[in-house]
């Protein structure tokens, strides 16, 4: 965003400052045409001061990201695998795993409101699962299948409407057909003579 503003002209110290906050202190990741200018500015007294400030911030953020406390370790995803089975367990890990066990115990300690187990929820579950990707990559109700069904439905509907609005030739001038005239014709065949 800030980059477009400074595409032309010589970079000022203020622009250098904004770009430092936007792009960071690694000039290699800056736009190529700005890299040389930025490096030159970083050599000036004020530029150096700004650069050092930005570097301080990056170092602080990185130091905290890499501390053991902030490192999120991968945990087994299967419910059958307990996270407590790691071989090299530190006190930090134990604390974290104890906390996870406490969380996993929530269903035992808190009763779900039965109102949640409504037909609607069960339907949501069914539909969600039906739309999910199967292990073989196929979908029960893929968008393509749903679209083709919708198209077929629309086509049948359109044909029905067209047939409905087509004027029909009527045997009578009034335009009314008395279907009841032929209702009992066939039954006369079965009449027994007296």
């Amino acid at each position: 965003m800030a980059i477009q503003q400074f595409e032309h002209g010589k970079m000022t110290l203020e622009q250098f400052e904004i770009l430092l906050d936007t792009l960071g202190t690694n000039f290699d990741s800056w736009p190529k045409m700005k890299q040389a200018e930025a490096r030159n500015l970083a050599q000036t007294l004020d530029g150096k001061r700004l650069f050092r400030g930005a570097q301080k911030l990056e170092m602080l953020m990185m130091a905290l990201q890499s501390t053991p406390q902030s490192t999120s370790q991968s945990v087994p995803e299967s419910s059958s695998e307990s996270p407590l089975v790691n071989s090299a367990v530190t006190p930090c890990d134990t604390q974290k795993e104890a906390f996870l066990e406490k969380l996993a115990d929530i269903p035992r300690r808190y009763q779900q409101n039965s109102a949640h187990l409504t037909v609607c929820n069960r339907m949501t579950l069914f539909v969600t699962q039906a739309l999910a990707v199967n292990s073989d990559g196929s979908r029960l109700f893929s968008p393509q299948r749903l679209a083709s069904q919708a198209a077929a439905f629309a086509a049948v509907l359109a044909v029905g409407i067209l047939v409905g609005i087509t004027p029909e030739e009527t045997p009578t001038g009034s335009g009314e057909i008395d279907l009841s005239e032929t209702w009992f014709v066939a039954s006369s065949d079965f009449e027994l003579g007296e």
């Binding site: 945990v75 419910s79 996993a104 187990l117 069960r122 579950l125």
Partner: peptide
């Protein structure tokens, strides 16, 4: 939502630490 505690456990294991 349907009361499956195993699913809840899986969400905890997957996202709790984060």
């Amino acid at each position: 939502c349907a009361g499956d505690s195993d699913a809840f456990r899986l969400l905890v294991i997957r996202h709790g630490a984060r």
